[in-house]
Each structure stands twice: as C-alpha cells, then as structure tokens.
Design a protein around this nucleic acid. Sequence first.
DNA 1: GAAATTTGTATTTTAAAAGATACAGGATAG
DNA 2: CTATCCTGTATCTTTTAAAATACAAATTTC
Lengths: 268, 268
Amino acid sequence: MNVQNGSAAPEGGKARRIYLLLRDEIMGGTHAPGSALPGELRLAETHGVSRVTIRRALDALVGDGLVERRAGSGTVVRRPSTQPVQLRADFATLMPQLQRMADATTARLLSFAYVNPPAMVAEALNIAAGERVQRAVRLRLADDKAFSHLTTFVPENIAQSYSEADLASTPLFRLLERRGVRIGNAHQTVSAVLATPDTAEALETTVGAALIALTRVVYDSDGAGIEYLSALYRPDRFQLEMTLNRVGGSDDRHWEPVFGEAAQRTAK
Amino acid sequence: MNVQNGSAAPEGGKARRIYLLLRDEIMGGTHAPGSALPGELRLAETHGVSRVTIRRALDALVGDGLVERRAGSGTVVRRPSTQPVQLRADFATLMPQLQRMADATTARLLSFAYVNPPAMVAEALNIAAGERVQRAVRLRLADDKAFSHLTTFVPENIAQSYSEADLASTPLFRLLERRGVRIGNAHQTVSAVLATPDTAEALETTVGAALIALTRVVYDSDGAGIEYLSALYRPDRFQLEMTLNRVGGSDDRHWEPVFGEAAQRTAK
DNA sequence: GAAATTTGTATTTTAAAAGATACAGGATAG
DNA sequence: CTATCCTGTATCTTTTAAAATACAAATTTC
C-alpha cells in the first residue's frame, strides 16, 4: 500500500527491522561487495526470528538490487552498478568545502517562512521571547540525487538585510559580512538520528533509516547568534571526513588536523 | 518476551517504529523538555496510522519516563530527572581528548582474538591475503553507563609488540612509538548506522536505534596501516563537537578549527 | 558422486498487531 | 458555563505478520 522507493520494503514488523539493519550494514561496508551474507538459517538465529522472516527481508534487499541470491550457494552483496555518489566533506574546514560543493550541487527550497523559533533554536541563538526567526528548509542534490536536508534559522532582524534572491547567488556569510556583520565563531555538533516521514520522503529514503545530523550555530564577534543550522545527511551519499597528522617532538607528540586539499590527497 | 531496557518497547511493527522515531526526536531536542507533543490524533495522521497505534508508541515513551501524559491537556516531554550524561569530544583533537576521557571512563573488554580481517579492514590497512589481525572489541562506560562500542583491528606483527596488560595501562600509540613505530597520519570518517542486536545489547539500547559511527584508520610514516578503529556511540550519551573561528583579512576570510581547551570555553 | 549446505517454494497454522468505534473524563479557551 | 480539544478506557473485528513444516533444487565440499 505504501511503497517507498521502488523497492519492496516490508511495511512494518520484524522483517522490516531486519531489512533496514541489513541494508544499513551493507551500505556501511560491514558486508563488502562480493562477499556472502550469513546463511538464512544463521541470520534467523542471530535475529531471533524464523527463516521465513529473514527471507522477506532478503527479498526486499534483492528488490533494492543490493544483494544477489544463488540457490545452493548463498546470498552475495552486489557490486553497486551505479557508482556510489558519495560526496565527501572535510569536517575541519567544512565551510569552504560546502562553498565549493554548492557549485557542483543543486539546491531546492522546500519551505520559507518567518516563525516562532523552536525552544532549542531560541536558546542557542539567545532569541528574546516573542521575537521571530526566518526558517528555510532546503534540499541539496548532487547528480539529481538528494543527499542533504537543511533547515536554517536566522533571527528576523538579520535576515532582513538580504533577500531570497541574494541568497541564491551569494553565500550567506558573504552577504552578512558585506552588511557589516562581523562573524566570530561557529560551533558544530555531529550526531545520528532516524529518518522521519517527512525527511525520509525528501531524502528519498525510508522511515527509520539512520541519518547523520549536523547542528551548527554561528555567532558574531559579540557572541550574538546569527544562524542555526540543522543538517541531515544520507550516510550512503555523504560523509564527513578528516585527516590528522602526528606532529611534535617526543615530549609533546600530538595530533593536528590537515586542512583543505591536503586532506584529500593524504587520504587513502 | 524480549524486553530491552526496562521499558516496554513494542516488539515490532508500526508502533515500534513510531516509538523509536519519537524517542529519537525527543532525545535529539526536536521536542524540547516541557513542550507538548502534537496531539494523538495529529500524530496518527502524520504517521499514517490509527490513534490506537500512536497510543501504543506513547505508552512506551511513558514507560521510559520520557513523556508525561495529562488527560485533557496533552502529552508533554519530561525534564530529564537524571542529567544527560552527555560526554563531549572535540572532533578536531579527538585523540588527546580520548586520552583524557580514558581517565574518567571505564573500559570492558568484550572479545579479543586473532582473526582474518574483514574485507574493509584488509583493504584499508593494506593487509596481504592470508595475513591475520588482532581484533579487540571494547565497551566504554562513563558513570556505569555504556556510551561507546569500539572494535579495533591491528595487524598481527604490530600487535605482537605489546601485551594485553600493556594496553590496559598505556595508550596504544605510546606503546607503538616506544617500540619504534613512527606514526604518520590518521583518517577519520563519521557516519550514522542502526543498532544491531549485538551492539544494541552492549550499548543498552534498542535494535534499530540510530548510532554515531566513527571509522579511523591510522598509518605509520611509510603509509602502512597500523590500526583500524570502528567506533559506535550512543548519541544521547556522546557527541562530537568542534568550534571554528572566522579568521583572515577581508580578502581571504575563512574558518579555522579551535583546538583543545579553547574549544570548550568558546562553546555555549 | 555422495553428503552436506544453501536457497527456492508452498501450505497451513498461530499469534500479534493494527484498526474501527464509542464513550467517559479532564483541561482549557472563550 | 459551555464548547472544544485533549487523553483514558474498553471492546470487537480485521488484517497482517510470523512461525512451523516439509520438500525440492542448486551448489559446494570432500
């Protein structure tokens, strides 16, 4: 009745749970392409369900094109035919990265309005009670595939210093700096959340899938809140990366992040 | 039959899915403590299920002590009685942080063995076919509460330069550097995954919950793989943080990570 | 080539979850 | 005080998922 992707994801129940789990493991690399999954009987035991249920979960994976089944042999993880789009962003230098990324990706505005800020946002930006904020929800696509769901909150008085059109052409921070706002620092937090019905739909995934959640709060030089960003990423299409170097003398050896392009080269 | 936490999490099916979702939202701050959840009827519509099903999910949340229901008034998010333990680690300087953290936390060894490396690991560490690796699975607890599930892979020849006892007292990198291994750089990736039966049990959470996944590969100065770490964190008990400063002249303004203690002070 | 293992298929039974519905009772807004 | 909106409770029905079971067919292993 409610088919999500094109796949035959089980509606609810254990089969669905196991489907999500296995899918997650496969896309996360736990089961490498070409390698065989544990046998159906084994899986049934591991997850404490009957073989029939495992079977239903596997059926869905086959429907997704993630695995291939060979009678008598086993179930094997398929080599993804379409290259994993896998965008990567360096966590240490996230901002400029995102900037460059903006060129290679498309954004779609899902919603735009001035609203009363959620408690979290009001607290983080230190918004006075009753004051409103501009909320914009954007979807970012690469290669016509959605990989990130962004919700930004900007205090009303700041938001009014630019138009929607401005935003389309120029990054927010440039706009603000031109207007004399002196950006001070930003604070980022990374977490993991489950896809809700709306975010799942936007990101073309399934309710209950694991998403990377990044929260960023930007302050001006006086410590006043400028922007609150809540970003959700599909882990199979986007990943946060960072390279560290071991530096210093034998007394004070420690790690130091590698910036920008160097990080890309050092990796792998 | 299979109660996970002490809560009454629905076995499978939609009620469970919605329970997980709402729980995730509450713990993630979408619904601030003290604020009311959407009405049951509204929730039923949003999630496309009947009110009874929503009700079952809410029952579980009440069982967890996450929400309080008042007849006629609504369902309200409870202020957590036990302060959120919330360990925080700075992503940029993760290593020293972890070092310091080790003092305040306990580790429990769940398994220890020499095994054939999974494909992912073999590739990342550039292990020759047939060569084995030391695999150790550890659980890290703070305040008697598990917050992280660590699996490390170290090539056999390197692992043999220290004993299990050594590891208990001294961090791996110190041990290796004393043995003449010259540590070069490390590469980290952050993602999000779902809790599987085993990781869920270890982390005292529920199958299908969202977890932060951090993968780290450490190389020596010759580029040879030294350690492959796969860490899972409970997002309600651990978070990756980072503070950035806006620096540079008007021509070349960009962001730069703030290290160590400074980051802690700047935040909030 | 025989034995063991693994997936494929089918049927039936059992259990669990979800839904529909109706009404009682508390809380709040006007 | 009343209309309205919420949760509380109960019952019954329907639908769906899961389990149990048996056997066939393909593959690998020895």
